[in-house]
Design a protein around this nucleic acid. Structure first.
Lengths: 210, 210
DNA sequence: GTCTATAGGCGGATAGAC
DNA sequence: GTCTATCCGCCTATAGAC
């Protein structure tokens, strides 16, 4: 922070990385400042020195991570592609982003569920809400043009999100009941990029309402 | 417990009900024995008197709830119905059961994620694994008969679970970004009984593999 | 069975030397 | 900036009177 020299990881960054790991694994209530310090290889007092309080550090991380989750998606939707390609990219990117950090969705959903008020701060600065608006316009345009069957943007959005995200959220339980090791599970998720997209797309282009 | 007289709620039951409420809202780490006692309207010492320790009370509840979630489904699958009707009943029942206790899925998924070892105890006594086996046989039979397109039972199971459960898990965040009040959200979920079933069924009966 | 009181330890936060 | 030592409140659990 002080000078311009390249440091692999400043203390501040080491603490942030460690805190992300511990908070996403244990949650706000389950995390311990001592564990964050140990994970970062620094003294517990340093954690307070840089981030003041546990609550403050947590909110810091929560906001940062929610924004990351939505950023990639926004870029896809704004791209110059056909509707079908956007939907396929949407799904593929969503799965790829989450694969980088598979514990993130459960972390975010869980903490948002325990303290919904925190969402209001995070969703101020346009990001997610803007993405939703963009998606809504796209879908309604396609429906009005008769390119896809009649469907609300909400239904489509929830279907896509459900199919992409749930396998990460339910991973331990699914892996257990389906007797899959880590590699099998990764392969399964990888293959879903294709199958989810096919499921969604086929549904959209089929005539259902007479 | 002692005599046969009907009591609306014995102390033991009041504590259990209170503990379910607090644990499902706050999680294991976030729950407080004092809060459970207050919620039950009894003294904190009584909670320990009946259930010994926090950990013990928690595991008690966790196991009980996981079994409840799978019981209804097992009954559906064993019923004497066509495959399509079973799938439709499966979806409808799953949504209805969870609607009775909407915070349950996130609770179970979250705690299973934090301590996967707990699953091994719960899934001993046949229930869930048996249900999976039944479902697997059903799907493979339909595929072999050529009644539905080629699909693995795992893919189908995960798709159905995802579409049914995710809206409950992500409720706070979805309700927020979609600007829905509680009633709107309930209506939306209710309508999904039909739309999810249509999506799944249409996919199964379509020829995709040439 | 139900209560009060308290033990005992953990964990967040800070003071203060270096 | 980094460390050690310590404060203090909170929370689980139990002892013991009634």
């Amino acid at each position: 922070m002080v000078d311009g020299k390249l440091q692999d990881h400043s203390t501040e960054e080491k603490i942030m990385d460690a805190a992300i790991k511990v908070f996403t694994q244990k949650g706000l209530a389950g995390a311990r400042m001592q564990e964050i310090a140990d994970e970062a290889g620094v003294n517990k007092a340093m954690v307070h020195y840089y981030y003041r309080s546990k609550q403050n550090l947590f909110e810091n991380i929560f906001k940062k991570k929610v924004k990351e989750l939505f950023r990639a998606i926004s870029i896809i939707l704004a791209a110059d592609k056909s509707f079908e390609d956007k939907v396929r990219s949407f799904i593929e990117t969503e799965i790829e982003v989450i694969s980088q950090f598979p514990t993130l969705p459960l972390f975010v959903l869980n903490e948002a569920g325990k303290n919904p008020a925190i969402l209001e701060e995070v969703f101020e600065e346009g990001g997610p809400k803007q993405m939703i608006g963009l998606f809504k316009m796209m879908v309604e345009h396609e429906v009005n043009q008769g390119n896809i069957r009649t469907i609300s943007f909400e239904e489509l959005l929830i279907n896509i999100m459900s199919l992409c995200i749930y396998p990460f959220v339910a991973r331990p339980i699914l892996q257990f009941v389906l007797d899959k090791d880590d590699l099998d599970y990764k392969d399964m998720i990888e293959s879903r990029k294709q199958t989810i997209a096919d499921l969604i797309i086929n549904d959209l282009f089929i005539k259902r309402d007479q």
